[in-house]
């Protein structure tokens, strides 16, 4: 018996969303950076992640998608996307991380039946530094995927507002 694809109408379908979130991010890294994003065999140890990119979602699905990584990973993303050496990455670093977050959010929503036309994305915002608290007012739970990029953790989270 095959499992039904997730739909917006099915709240239970959200159990499928974490793997979709993972695949959405993995496709972005593989296609746009040429680098795999791996699922760790065990959750990596918590560490300070100083770069946070955020994209808002509005429409049938409201919430915020965040991508958090350390500075080393952010530099690596920019260098892979632009085809430049890591030490050449300048201000476009933030643009690169924001675009990765934006494409992950877009790719994720396009994988969910009915969301492509029914949900729009905000422009990305990137925050540097780890000494902050995020208050998204999400009230319908959060999905979280921890992946490894060149051995460093990348945390993708979707906080959902009903």
């Amino acid at each position: 018996m095959s499992s039904a694809p997730p739909t917006l109408a099915s709240v239970q379908g959200r159990e499928y969303w974490v793997p979709l979130l993972q695949v959405a991010a993995q496709e972005v890294f593989e296609l746009m950076l040429g680098c795999p994003l791996q699922v760790p065999p065990e959750p990596p140890a918590e560490q300070r992640l100083d770069i946070t990119a955020m994209v808002g979602l509005a429409g049938q699905l409201c919430g915020i998608l965040t991508l958090r990584c350390n500075a080393k990973s952010a530099v690596r993303m920019a260098s892979e996307m632009l085809g430049i050496e890591a030490d050449q990455a300048g201000p476009e670093l933030w643009d690169a991380v924001g675009e990765v977050c934006n494409m992950t959010a877009g790719n994720f929503k396009n994988k969910i039946t009915g969301l492509g036309d029914a949900c729009v994305l905000s422009v990305p915002t990137v925050i540097t530094g780890g000494d902050y608290s995020l208050h998204s007012f999400a009230n319908a739970g959060a999905l979280r995927a921890v992946l490894l990029f060149e051995g460093e953790p990348v945390v993708i989270a979707l906080e959902i507002h009903s």
Binding site: V28, L31, M103, G106, N107, N110, G116, D117, V120, L121
Partner: peptide
């Protein structure tokens, strides 16, 4: 386009665009 909204794509094609590519590509 990142959004991949079918509605937007249809509008763009109707307005004269010849094709569309969805990010990531």
């Amino acid at each position: 386009t990142t959004e991949g909204s079918e509605g937007q794509v249809v509008q763009a094609l109707s307005a004269g665009a010849r094709g569309y590519i969805r990010k990531p590509f």
